[in-house]
């Protein structure tokens, strides 16, 4: 067994894991304000990627495409909130689970018919020629994924900590009623969280597409692992997702190398079910007190 191969596997797996973490972070954003998540988030990733690809195809330069794609993602996030989440939250029901699944299906079908079922390459100015660092091959493209993930998470966190609106966001997650009493509209804050979450999903799509290509099913495996990361880390645990994402990504690439590529989905799923069995609120999550 070659230590260099293992290291190679771990590093490239961990970089993939960062994308899972980014999507999982999107779940945390909406869970914080509304205790709900978008089960069709994978379709948001995919639709934003297709939209960005279209922007590139009609001649928009790469660096202008990025904000365009992010805006598109945010808009989709808002749409999901309006059509699938708000009513259920008002009725205090869990109808949003079903509704977001349904909206995801609608998005999937639309993508299939608008952009076709084939996988398409996603051009990028960033080179994919491997660099050798300590005997490990790593491409600038992979590095750009890491930078992109941290950049967008950092931006959102900066927003949350340093603007009054961001603090209001935290206030709504801490105590929704009290926030309302301060004049902070919980409905608008939940909208904001869905917008941000959609933006984060779009970023994940733009970052991962050059590596995986773009197609209607591009996110279906991705999203399962993001779910696993979010649940294992805890839906309210902040940066726990990064750690769990990295570990899961590494574990996955080792599994597919040593057991078989068909099994690469398995560790995340097993981890998720185990985490629910052992720590239902996640490794980094807080326990809740039952109230009557």
């Amino acid at each position: 067994m070659n230590i260099e191969i293992i290291a190679q596997m771990v590093v490239s797996g961990a970089l993939m894991g960062l994308v899972y973490a980014l999507i999982a972070y999107g779940f945390q954003l909406t869970y914080a304000t509304s205790k709900s998540i978008n089960f069709g988030q994978g379709e948001l990733v995919m639709l934003s990627a297709f939209f960005s690809l279209t922007l590139l195809n009609i001649g928009v330069p790469y660096w202008l495409m990025v904000p365009g794609g992010l805006l598109f993602g945010a808009a989709l996030g808002l749409l999901v909130e309006r059509a699938g989440v708000r009513l259920a939250l008002q009725q205090k029901s869990e109808g949003w689970i079903l509704l977001t699944i349904i909206l995801g299906l609608l998005g999937f079908s639309s993508a299939e018919n608008i952009w076709g079922r084939d996988d398409r390459p996603f051009p990028t100015p960033i080179s994919s020629d491997a660099l050798h660092v300590f005997g490990i091959n790593i491409t600038p493209l992979e590095i750009s994924v890491a930078i992109g993930v941290f950049a967008i998470m950092g931006l959102v966190e900066l927003f949350k900590r340093n603007t009054l609106l961001g603090k209001a966001f935290e206030a709504v997650s801490a105590d929704r009623d009290a926030a309302e009493l301060m004049g902070i509209s919980a409905t608008r804050t939940i909208m904001l969280s869905y917008g941000l979450s959609g933006m984060v999903a779009a970023m994940a799509g733009i970052l991962i597409s050059p590596i995986t290509t773009v197609g209607p099913t591009m996110a279906s495996a991705l999203i399962l692992k993001a779910f696993a990361v979010a649940v294992v880390a805890g839906l309210d645990s902040g940066f726990g997702v990064v750690l769990v994402g990295i570990v899961l990504g590494a574990l996955e690439s080792l599994t597919s190398f040593y057991i078989g590529s068909g099994w690469r989905e398995a560790p995340g799923l097993v981890l998720l079910i185990l985490a629910l069995a052992v720590r239902p609120n996640g490794v980094f999550g807080k326990a809740t007190i039952r109230k009557v």
Binding site: E170, A174, D175, L181
Partner: peptide, 8 residues
């Protein structure tokens, strides 16, 4: 019950 924003 005061309802301050605990984590802030």
């Amino acid at each position: 019950g005061r309802k301050v924003f605990g984590p802030l």
